[in-house]
Nucleic acid binder design. Structure first.
Length: 523
RNA sequence: GGCAGCAUAGCUCAGUUGGUUAGAGCGACGGUCUCAUAAUCCGUAGGUCACAGGUUCAAUUCCCGUUGCUGCUACCA
């Protein structure tokens, strides 16, 4: 078994506002992956957190009459609360306002500076005072008026900024993309990056003046580090053990390099271009893979505050529960592509798969065990029904490998499909065998054989689905009289056939997943 | 504008290295069983595989064009 260390990250979410569904989605995916790797026995470090610097946060805080730190201190608990409600098993919550982070950033900056990749230059351009931003000429209206603030013209500014020598890394980046075709996934995202880089890379400024919210530039405290420069380093800070001195050496010793950054495609460039260049400059290894997932729409329409059609993740989990939400997003949406949320569809998919197919499979077979098999796990039989049970058993035996491949490829949809195929074949097996008829004719051996097959297959299905629906799987296990601690699930041996032991008493069956009802009026 | 991608049943998607009746799930409709959470299982869905050309004995699958949609086209994050 591969016991490689796996550190994986969600984005460090911008702590400007409370979490939205776009933050929940990749976090759910990352959690499923982290749980999968832990089950396989890989030492796993699952990192999430918040990015707490930059102009937007500063402004939001000002509006609310708070300091930036106070503002973030109020936002962060809401992220943590949502993650708890969604059953997210993160190991580290990295906040970029952490003083330890500053130490890491300073050290990293020094390395890049020593490499000669940071220099002072002039940022010239048209500046909208109202936006406090430089604008491109092409995005402005006539006479250099800002489209947002049409009353006043932008003014020409000539501002000193520190720059990172990104252009120096053009060739090495292109080589990286060639040498490691899996570095950027999925393929379409990779093509976007290739196209972008092929245009030629410009150095980018990594400092701002007139900005308080952020770290001072180590070599020039009049400047503040540009948010992204320190935000990306939050991943490395998160690698520090709690008692470690905050040095790069300590951060890199166990978990580096990071295996996977799971991000939205909207921040792909920072992770696939700037970040590896920064790491090259600091002479650090590059993350193994950057995966840019798709974005979500609601009922086919882009979500936005102005449209008022945002999905509130708190509301969704509150009404339907963590497993249902986790399952829908990973089952129904091809990870990597854009996807849609539709509440009626959500309810029908979740009911069909979790309640009707898997839940009812367990419930009906346990019911029969209690009626026909003395409330204990039946024997696996003598093989009379082999022609019916063998295909199911074969499918269950191979399921672990198939599902593991799919998880490794972040193909959650495929994971679900593979598992459902087994579940469906079990429901069909029951109908084909019809144990209730065998009971009347007294064919106990065949009853046992069919029910053992189905229970054991259901167990494997639940086990392999547990990274996605941990609570549900734990319930299946307890219904089967087995232990399943959500916080430390049993190891991958459980993917094998034959774990259920004949004669073991079974508790009274109880539906593991209640059918959902649409609880809100569809607008 | 430039570059890239996509366009298959009501919905979400598979698929065809070009070749008899184009598939799955969900939804809908009909039927069956009775162990079960009115669940399961079976059957039905007559989709010109976006549109118009081309190559070929043969294209939904290759090529060109058109239309539509999406993404990228750098310093808000």
């Amino acid at each position: 078994m591969n016991l490689e260390h796996v550190a994986l990250t969600t984005p460090l979410y911008y702590a400007n506002d409370i979490p939205h569904i776009g933050s929940a989605y990749p976090t759910i995916a990352a959690d499923a992956l982290a749980r999968f790797y832990r089950m396989r026995g890989n030492p796993t470090l699952f990192i999430t957190g918040t990015d707490e610097h930059g102009l937007k946060i500063q402004r939001t805080a000002e509006k609310l009459n708070r300091t930036a730190q106070e503002h973030c201190d109020r936002i962060v608990p809401q992220f943590k609360d949502l993650w708890q409600q969604l059953n997210i098993s993160y190991d580290r919550f990295s906040r970029t306002s952490d003083p330890r982070h500053q130490s890491i950033v300073n050290e990293f900056f020094q390395r890049v500076y020593d490499a000669g990749d940071i220099y002072l230059s002039q940022q010239q351009g048209l500046y909208c005072v109202a936006c406090e931003e430089f604008k491109e000429e092409r995005e402005l209206l006539a006479d250099h008026h800002c489209p947002i603030h049409t009353a006043t013209a932008c003014e020409w500014r000539d501002e000193a900024n520190y720059f990172f020598r990104l252009s120096k890394y053009q060739a090495r980046l292109e080589q990286l993309y060639v040498d490691r075709p899996d570095f950027i996934q999925p393929e379409t995202r990779r093509n976007e990056v290739l196209g972008f880089v092929a245009q030629g890379l410009n150095d980018f400024s990594i400092s701002r003046i007139n900005l308080e919210c952020g770290f001072p530039v180590p070599i020039d405290p009049n400047h503040t580090l540009y948010v992204w420069f320190d935000a990306l380093l939050g991943y490395i800070t998160a690698l520090l053990d709690p008692d470690d001195e905050p040095t790069l050496e300590n951060a890199l010793k166990h978990w580096y390099p990071i295996q996977l950054h799971l991000i939205g495609k909207d921040i792909l460039r920072f992770h696939a271009v700037y970040w590896p260049a920064m790491l090259m400059s600091a002479q650090l290894e590059i993350t193994k893979c950057v995966f840019g997932h798709g974005l979500l729409t609601k009922d086919g329409i882009k979500m936005g505050k102005t449209l008022g059609n945002v999905i509130d993740p708190f509301d969704l989990v509150g009404r339907y529960g963590a497993d249902a939400v986790r399952y829908y997003f990973l089952r129904e949406i091809e990870f990597g592509r854009d996807g849609d949320f539709n509440e009626e569809r959500f309810v029908s998919i979740v009911n069909a798969d979790l309640a009707n197919s898997l839940g009812n499979l367990l419930n009906r077979s346990l019911g029969m065990v209690h009626k026909y098999c003395n409330h204990v796990v039946p024997s696996s039989g003598s093989g009379k029904l082999a022609s019916l049970t063998d295909p199911v058993i074969d499918s269950a035996r191979g399921l672990g490998d198939r599902v593991a491949t799919a998880y490794s490829n972040l193909a959650f949809r495929q994971v679900c499909e593979e598992i459902l195929n087994l579940v469906w074949s079990c429901n069909k097996l029951i109908d084909d065998v019809a144990p209730w008829k065998l009971f009347k004719s007294g064919e106990q051996d065949s009853i046992d054989e069919s029910l053992y097959t189905v229970l054991e297959a259901a167990r494997i299905a639940a086990y392999l689905l547990s990274p996605i629906t941990p609570r549900l799987s734990a319930l299946v296990y307890s219904q089967l009289g087995l232990e399943f601690l959500e916080s430390s699930p049993p190891d991958w041996e459980q993917a094998k056939w034959g774990i259920l032991i004949e004669g073991q008493p079974l508790p009274q069956p109880n539906p593991i997943f209640q059918r959902l009802e649409v609880t809100s009026v569809i607008k």
